[in-house]
Design a protein around this nucleic acid. Structure first.
Lengths: 190, 190
DNA sequence: TTGTTGAGATGACAACGTCAACTGAAACTG
DNA sequence: CAGTTTCAGTTGACGTTGTCATCTCAACAA
């Protein structure tokens, strides 16, 4: 027996998945409501039963991506972490990694704030709370707040520059990993 | 006497200016070829006499923006610069500044690489060469290449995070300026 | 059973990027 | 000078897109 709310939830899932798949495969322009609907097995304007408009659908995709990053960080925090700076390194490289494997999704996560940015920002906030914990284990509770902002910004900058083709390796002679390591080396250890 | 090449050049200028103005005023979605043409005093498909397509027009806007940043850096390099780290600070804060005043243009400058990214990248290359000089004056010629990549990435990350609404001040208790100063303070002075 | 609800389908519309065909004046050629 | 070419610009049209109004119909409530 399939209830109505069950099929509705399943459709919503299929819509978000389809949008994400199209985004990965062909970039933002490839995400059309018609194609999203087709892949989800419904028709072109069915998404309007689940999202206010196209922007809201994309916001849902971004929110899920942030949640996944949050889960990864949560795993890092949960571990014993003999070497705190190793956990920090993994956290920063996780950003570089997702940027490389899913650049369009990464861009979406940092897209221009929507009319009502609360949904995406709230998901990002949890992520940054966890990140703050990881940083505190390295530089201490007191300095974590300022260094956390710098570390997050730098890792994002490295990632975003790299997927934009602006991190010219022949000029800087540095990969994303090397820049992350260089940054961590500059930190005052607690 | 107005020659044909003169009016053509003038039209091209007007098109680029109109596109930039529309971008600043209403974001990427507000830049339609029809409106660009109208503001430039020509009609909807006139831009195709000057640019291959809409993407090429936007690439021209981005290229000009990179040139302006390059000019600003050139002025910094030309000065005597009693304190090299002050020049570096100004260079980094220039990125934060343009991001704040013209966020949509800033995003365009770091947009996804086009099919043929050579045009934009070449303009960015000059900018980064100048930036390399400024960095070398602070950390020395040898270390400039690795630290330059880090500094550029970090400043971009701070700026991009800020205009994306993801640099949560209540969490990190740090403005863009403070993060830039913090980063500079970490550098090994030559 | 009958009425209500809400997910989905369909038709339609305006706006958009883009192209083909056309126009006219400047620039060149003899 | 006349004839020809070139090319910036216009207009008409086409396919695609996001979105809305309307309709359908199965799940639920009474």
């Amino acid at each position: 027996m399939v209830t109505r709310v069950e099929t509705a939830a399943a459709t919503r899932r299929a819509l978000v998945d389809a949008a994400g798949a199209l985004l990965d495969a062909g970039g933002p322009d490839a995400v059309t409501l018609r194609e999203v609907g087709a892949r989800a097995g419904v028709s072109r304007s069915a998404p309007y039963r689940h999202f206010a408009d196209k922007e809201s659908l994309l916001a849902a995709v971004a929110t899920e991506a942030w949640s996944e990053v949050g889960d990864a960080l949560e795993a890092l925090v949960a571990e014993p972490a003999a070497r705190p700076e190793q956990a920090l390194r993994q956290a920063l490289l996780a950003m570089v990694e997702i940027g490389r494997t899913r650049p369009h999704l990464y861009r979406l996560m940092f897209a221009a704030p929507a009319a009502d940015p609360t949904v995406v920002v709230r998901a990002a906030e949890r992520t940054q709370d966890l990140f703050l914990e990881i940083v505190a284990a390295v530089v201490g509770q007191g300095a974590a707040r300022q260094y956390g902002g710098l570390l997050l910004s730098s890792a994002h900058g490295v990632t975003h520059l790299e997927i934009s083709g602006h991190l010219l390796e022949h000029k800087w002679q540095a990969t994303g990993e090397q820049l992350v390591d260089l940054l961590i080396g500059l930190l005052p250890m607690d």
